[in-house]
């Protein structure tokens, strides 16, 4: 299916952002503001991510989908913290590559998968996941 104008615009805008390498300054800023270090710049704080683990009952053996997770925040964090499996999705390939690298370097790539996909046409069957999150995504 042909991407809509909104999808093309979001992909281009965010690809540019995710193509920019992080620096000590941007990492320090993110840690000070929301407590994460994923190259995120949204409004989901670490305390709120912890609340999601609880509210969604995430645990080993469960499968989570994070839609529009950028470089992996908060999906990868939720999986690391709870032990659940995760699929993170977003439009720019660059973001998914960074997320894959992060899951690998933290030693849980066996239960973390990245898929380049639009939220409007997710390529998953019904009841594939126990929980779905999306934070700061309007599409």
């Amino acid at each position: 299916m042909v991407p809509s104008r909104d999808e093309r615009e979001a992909a281009a805008l965010f690809a540019e952002r995710y193509g920019r390498p992080g620096s000590d300054a941007t990492r320090d800023l993110e840690r000070l503001v929301i407590g994460s270090d994923f190259g995120a710049n949204g409004y989901t704080t670490m305390a709120q991510a912890d609340l999601l683990v609880e509210r969604l009952d995430l645990a080993e053996g469960k499968r989570l989908l994070d839609v529009g997770s950028g470089r992996g925040w908060p999906g990868l964090y939720l999986a690391k913290k709870s032990g659940c499996g995760v699929v993170v999705t977003d439009l720019p390939e660059e973001a998914m590559r960074t997320a894959a690298h992060r899951a690998g370097s933290e030693g849980f790539s066996d239960r973390a998968h990245m898929v380049v996909a639009s939220a409007r046409r997710l390529p998953f069957g019904t009841a594939t996941f126990n929980a779905i999150v999306h934070t700061d995504v309007l599409c």
Binding site: S23, T26, L32, I34, T45
Partner: peptide, 23 residues
């Protein structure tokens, strides 16, 4: 949300020289 938005602004200003140098 407002608190977090204010923190982005406050710390962006505090770290402004380093952010300008990197971004």
């Amino acid at each position: 949300f407002l608190e977090t938005a204010l923190r982005w602004l406050r710390f962006s200003r505090e770290l402004e020289p380093a952010l300008r140098a990197s971004l």
